[in-house]
Design a protein around this nucleic acid. Sequence first.
DNA 1: ACCAATCTAATTGCTCACAATCTAATTGTG
DNA 2: CACAATTAGATTGTGAGCAATTAGATTGGT
Lengths: 146, 146
Amino acid sequence: MSQHPELGLDHQLCFSLYRASRAVIRAYRPLLKGLGLTYPQYLVMIVLWQENEGLSVKQIGARLGLDSGTLTPLLRRLEASGHITRSRDDADERRAVITLTDAGRALQDDAASIPGELNRMYAACDVDAGDLKTQLDVLGEFLPSA
Amino acid sequence: MSQHPELGLDHQLCFSLYRASRAVIRAYRPLLKGLGLTYPQYLVMIVLWQENEGLSVKQIGARLGLDSGTLTPLLRRLEASGHITRSRDDADERRAVITLTDAGRALQDDAASIPGELNRMYAACDVDAGDLKTQLDVLGEFLPSA
DNA sequence: ACCAATCTAATTGCTCACAATCTAATTGTG
DNA sequence: CACAATTAGATTGTGAGCAATTAGATTGGT
């Protein structure tokens, strides 16, 4: 038996969060499989679908909270599967310009049904997604990172 | 502009969850660094601290929702750093028996202050950890996985 | 114009997650 | 007992995350 009862899985928010996040990603997996996307790739595509212009790695990273160490290989895979193209900004050669291909843009229509699908699952679990989201966003935005 | 407004980062619980989970793990990192543990290793140690007996890989995996593909190398690293020992059950040679070393058990005292540290961060963010946890546990336990 | 700071990506190395497969041990059934 | 089915864990391969470093481009101050 533990001498530190507060140090148990059942008493900590962290594990609930970690497990729920993996569970939601797992719920997406079969839906995204049909689109040929992983979950983080899907998030990058969502960012790109919201823009008409090409975005830099930096800009994508800022929206998702991911750095180039994660994004560079992920974007390489999205390029290999034909969803995006990668080039360099003429005005600033340091900037990579990530642009949707026609196929990548067309994928948005196929993805349109996914949010509704997930909302149905949340509802079936009696979870108020809106309320939950508000609290999670505070953690995601304001929790000290160091 | 998107033709599918519901398909945006700002409208989906999934991204908030994904980002918050990474933010919380990031908040743990500096605290765990002093113990020589990563976050998933910390979760395994919590499971072991709650038991007097050695546990099988299966039992640890059941509590955390992780499979042997994740746990086997992780446990190997915990063994290499001296926190646990791995042996085989005499009665059933298929079962690995994971046991805390004295050093691994002693680490519990060093970890005792961590939950309070995190609760202080949650409070500073005005997040009701208890309420949030209840909803997340529903998702983690009952969300369909296929 | 020079040169030092800054900035953007890319790279390297380590650690998860997880699907799929494999091996060996055990159990159940005839 | 024999042997098919099941079980536990390890292994392999792919794809994240993230810290730390590197390379190259740009900016700013003198």
